[in-house]
Computed example of a mutant assay.
Amino acid sequence: MSAVNRAAVEAVLRQYTDPYLNQDPVSAGCVRAIDVQGDKVSVQLELGYAAGLFKSGWAQMLQMAIEGLDGVSSARVDIQCVIAPHKAQAQVPG
Rank of each mutant, 00 (worst) to 15 (best):
M1K: 13
S2D: 14
A3I: 07
V4Y: 03
A7H: 12
A7M: 13
A8G: 10
A8P: 11
E10T: 03
E10F: 03
A11Y: 09
V12K: 05
V12T: 15
L13G: 04
R14D: 15
Y16V: 06
Y16W: 15
Y16N: 14
Y16M: 10
T17G: 13
D18Y: 15
D18L: 13
D18K: 12
D18A: 13
P19I: 07
Y20F: 12
Y20D: 10
L21F: 07
L21T: 09
L21H: 09
Q23Y: 14
D24C: 06
S27W: 01
S27Y: 04
A28G: 11
G29M: 04
V31M: 02
V31Y: 07
V31T: 04
D35L: 05
V36Y: 03
Q37I: 00
Q37C: 00
D39R: 09
K40W: 04
K40L: 08
V41G: 01
V43C: 01
E46D: 12
L47E: 02
Y49V: 09
G52R: 07
L53N: 14
F54G: 06
F54M: 12
S56R: 10
S56L: 12
G57Q: 02
A59I: 05
A59H: 09
A59D: 05
A59L: 07
L62D: 04
Q63C: 02
M64E: 15
A65Y: 08
A65E: 08
E67W: 02
E67A: 02
G68R: 09
G68F: 06
G71W: 13
G71R: 11
A75G: 02
A75H: 00
R76Q: 14
V77Q: 03
V77P: 03
D78C: 08
Q80P: 06
Q80W: 14
C81H: 04
C81Y: 05
I83L: 10
P85T: 09
P85Y: 04
P85S: 07
K87L: 13
A90V: 15
Q91E: 15
V92S: 13
P93H: 05
P93S: 04
